[in-house]
């Protein structure tokens, strides 16, 4: 044991890079198709994440918030919290399973009670910021000479008008109780749909960067971090290309079959 510890510390970085590479390539294998290798890593991932989660629940929640107060500080009423939590498990016993609903109901109630504050904090501030001035004007000062509102230029006024139009159109799309027979409403809802497609395009494009950035990070790991362990970036790059080629070749053969 005494020798294992320093050896482990010394080789930790290298080992995790090797392990990480296997994991990366293993999961990437789904790009070819579902296969045994992927299945292996999928289950490994499932196990690791579950163990990690369980560990975290104990070390970060249950131990400090429940075990220590109960055991070390003598807060005996924490046992009540345990019992309340255990009520969930009555679901496994058919005869008393309805009692579990008391616990679930309580938690659901609490979530709903919090929703008021969530609603206000989430959406309320967006209401006054939607009050857009639509006509250009000079800066306004009050009697004491304090700036009340900044000047509004013509392009800004146009932008605000566009904003308001889109807001109204899109909101009109989401009225469900009125049949959209009315011509104005129909047009406006249709325009709303187009505006949404416009927005979804923007979101799609914007997200592209996020995802590409993550792939860059992963490939950076493979080519630069792992590459330096097996003789340089070039070696790893070649290896990657070889793997890709093999996959394309295999895919074409299986497609023909």
């Amino acid at each position: 044991m005494t020798e294992f510890s320093p050896w482990l510390a010394e080789h930790l970085k290298v080992m995790s890079i090797w392990l990480g590479t296997f994991c990366t390539l293993g999961l990437f294998s789904i790009l070819y198709r579902e296969n045994k290798l992927y299945r292996f890593f999928e289950h490994l991932f499932l196990g690791i994440s579950m163990g990690y989660l369980m560990g975290n629940v104990w070390t970060d929640t249950l131990r400090p918030k429940w075990w220590i107060p109960l055991w070390d500080k003598g807060e005996w009423w924490q046992a009540g919290v345990l019992i309340f939590g255990l009520f969930y498990y009555l679901i496994f016993f058919k005869k008393v399973s309805w009692i579990a609903r008391l616990s679930i109901g309580f938690i659901l109630g609490a979530s709903s009670g919090l929703a008021f504050q969530g609603f206000v904090n989430d959406y309320w501030p967006q209401i006054p910021t939607s009050f857009k001035p639509l006509w250009p004007h000079q800066a306004i000062y009050d009697k004491t000479g304090l700036l009340v509102s900044k000047a509004l230029s013509v392009p800004d006024a146009i932008n605000n008008l566009i904003f308001m139009t889109i807001l109204v159109c899109v909101m009109s799309y989401f009225f469900f109780s009125i049949e959209q027979n009315n011509r104005v409403l129909k047009r406006s809802a249709q325009a709303g749909r187009w505006m949404m497609m416009f927005t979804f395009g923007a979101i799609f494009g914007s997200t592209m960067m996020a995802r590409i950035a993550l792939l860059i990070d992963r490939l950076d790991f493979l080519v630069n971090d792992f590459g330096s362990h097996i003789g340089g970036q070039g070696v790893m790059f070649t290896l990657l290309l070889f793997l890709c080629g093999a996959v394309i070749f295999l895919a074409q053969r299986t497609d023909k079959e």
């Binding site: 995790s16 590479t21 999961l27 990437f28 490994l44």
Partner: peptide, 18 residues
């Protein structure tokens, strides 16, 4: 750390990179 960095982090970020 070995399990966390070598396995968990690698698997997590790979899946995201997919």
């Amino acid at each position: 750390m070995l399990l966390f960095e070598g396995l968990y982090q690698a698997l997590d970020s790979t899946m995201f990179a997919l």
